[in-house]
Design a protein around this nucleic acid. Structure first.
Lengths: 165, 165
DNA sequence: TCTATTGTTGATAAAATTAGTCAGGTATAG
DNA sequence: CTATACCTGACTAATTTTATCAACAATAGA
């Protein structure tokens, strides 16, 4: 799991879409203007988001993009993975041909952590982020009260367990 | 909070050090060989880690690096922040001069999430990762039972609260 | 004490990867 | 038709990673 500006742009754009969910399709040009991201870069990102089914597109005048499924069913991890093609984190692909005991050991530790991060981000949906701030007006950062991904209770349990709770 | 290969290398190297904690200093050449990271890159990373006091260095034959403080007192977030100089995540530095309502809105959502990720990683120490696999031999990834950062119980509570628990 | 060895430190630059731009094409509503 | 907005692929810029080099520090052994 990697977390770069690319993923941040994608999440930001998807949040923008989620805020206009169930309305007319949103043109990328609007998102570009609102979020301060270049149109051409957005086009590149949305090509991938579309391939993953995270968004639907409509061409022509009045066209644009819509969320491919309800915001509650799109996790942050979904979005990031769609645009940030995964790099073989361990560099020994599934800890084979990984010579030396020490190496596999640290690689195991890292990939364990990496899994935790992934589960963490997979437990947060677009809907949650949006709902969260509907309660408080604009004070989204002070009080962090993020709920778990509701449509995947099994993952929630898993993440809770992972946190030792 | 950014999560790139650079941070991964740093964490991997620090884990390697943690595994040899309280022994002789470890030469970077050893880590480079064991973890498959270029020596020169490690030298650059460790220059930063040293400046942050996360490691101590010893020169001369038999020299190398040691952890700067007990592994239980070094969080993953510490390591990543030391090498990955922070990028202004919102691009409107603290949500000022952020024209347009929509923009600040999504930026708030993002920075809230970003804070969560940071707290999450700050709640995991090197010691925990190492201890974790001491129980199970090599099966570190299947059962994720990461404990919270023991020397910072306040942060643990904060993270728990952030998760809505 | 002198010297060879091992290893750090810092600067600089090349190679490789990633991020972002640009110029054109395609579909569609009016 | 035509204006809008998606789509695609080639291109450039920026960053990350590796490599090279020149000093410097500490130690072991003669």
């Amino acid at each position: 799991m990697r977390l770069t500006t690319k993923g941040r742009y994608a999440v930001t754009a998807m949040l923008d879409l989620a805020l206009h969910h169930a309305q007319e399709p949103i043109a990328l040009a609007d998102i570009a203007r609102r979020q301060g991201i270049s149109l051409s870069y957005l086009e590149q990102l949305f090509a991938r988001l579309r391939k993953q089914g995270l968004v639907d597109s409509a061409r022509g005048p009045g066209g644009g993009y819509r969320l491919g499924r309800p915001p509650a069913e799109i996790s942050i991890a979904n979005v990031i993975q769609a645009v940030d093609e995964k790099v073989d984190a361990t560099r020994c692909g599934g800890k084979m041909n990984c010579q030396g005991e020490e190496r596999c050991l640290t690689h195991d530790l890292w990939s364990g952590l990496s899994d935790q991060i992934h589960e963490f981000l997979d437990a947060i949906s677009l809907a949650q982020l949006v709902e969260k701030r509907d309660g408080k007006n604009g004070a989204a950062r002070q009080t962090g009260s993020i709920q778990f991904y509701p449509s995947a209770p099994d993952k929630m349990a898993k993440t809770k367990a992972a946190l030792g709770l």
